[in-house]
Design a binder for these strands. Sequence first.
DNA 1: ATTATCTATAGATCTATAGATAATGC
DNA 2: ATTATCTATAGATCTATAGATAATGC
Lengths: 219, 219
Amino acid sequence: MNLSSRTMDIPSQVKNPALVESRRRQIVDATVLLFIARGFHKTTTRQIAHAAGLPIGTLYEYIASKEDILYLVCDAIHAEVEQGVSEALALAKGGRDALARVIREYFMVCHRMSDHILLIYQETQSLPNQYRKKVLENEVRITGLFMEVLAHLMASGELPHIEERAVELMAHNISVLGHMWTFRRWFLGRHYTIEDYIALQTDFIIGLSNQNPGKVRPF
Amino acid sequence: MNLSSRTMDIPSQVKNPALVESRRRQIVDATVLLFIARGFHKTTTRQIAHAAGLPIGTLYEYIASKEDILYLVCDAIHAEVEQGVSEALALAKGGRDALARVIREYFMVCHRMSDHILLIYQETQSLPNQYRKKVLENEVRITGLFMEVLAHLMASGELPHIEERAVELMAHNISVLGHMWTFRRWFLGRHYTIEDYIALQTDFIIGLSNQNPGKVRPF
DNA sequence: ATTATCTATAGATCTATAGATAATGC
DNA sequence: ATTATCTATAGATCTATAGATAATGC
């Protein structure tokens, strides 16, 4: 999991930046699993230190509080999601069915990172205001990537023009319908495979089936 | 806030059922506000007792654990949401634009109960398995109400027929797009009023504008 | 000499209950 | 006599740090 340079505004007692980065990666990688399994509040700093292979005192040389760790974790998750989405966009730039392909790639990212995305939904509230704000900004930036795609496809005439606010909301809908697979998976997973889900939601979002490009929307 | 009879399987030291019900309502009403403001883990049982106007010892005559209180709170919220949705369905039964009216009423419920729905998203994970399962069942039952409406409208020919799995997923989408107003409100609230949101999302879901019933879906 | 690591624990919680007290009903 | 309420606290945490130790670089 990547630690973005954005995270580097968290103060550390240790001076060597390369060491800070590598230890923090070590901490984040170990902590993600604990937080997914037990949640933020039920995970103790001792468990984190132990899982990361550090004594508790050393852990606190690299962060100042347990909340710092949660922020590092959320930020690392968003960095990975954003990278996945960016790759998806690069893959599916332009051409027919570009939007359907973007949706597919993004939903596969959500599928792969189900537990991580769920964690962000559950624990963002546990962050101090300052950090929460940054995490929410990450969410906006990722949604913005979808807006760009939609705007680009409209500009090139591959999608009909709709008003800007509708484009923005559609970008949010795509984001959230991907997340829905993570937070309703306990139910959806029993009735649909991820492929079913992608096919049905693509119809819902685009209003046209990929298999039958001419078919009109059911209602 | 209503305490449903479903909640009565939580054991109490106190024998008088009417007293148990009234004290638990007192506890739940006070606790909801604390949980919304500070979250489950940061709220102490002493704060709950104090807010409910009970000594801590008395509080524990009516519940066995802090998790019991969280369950009572989640269940009470779902009971209120379900009642709101049921009323909405009764209001909008059949006739033209029935679906649009159901969506509007439901989204208004989400708008009114924003903080409460958000609380469920955040704290369901903090429940013991047994309780979590029941809370998720509540969510399924509420989604089921939307399925019924869609099925009913299709049966009476007011909506084109689509396959059952698509109906089910559409019901989930309506549920979640209502919730989206609660968990993205920090962003959406800056750009849209609830009326804007309802209008745009209704277009998105139904594919037809209310103002221009003949207009086809943008794409 | 400076930087990083480690041990041991201070200090501050917080949940849940035991046992005493008060109120109620027969 | 039974039921409900209240006080005081046991017992079990958990975060964060002080101060000692080890490693590194000049």
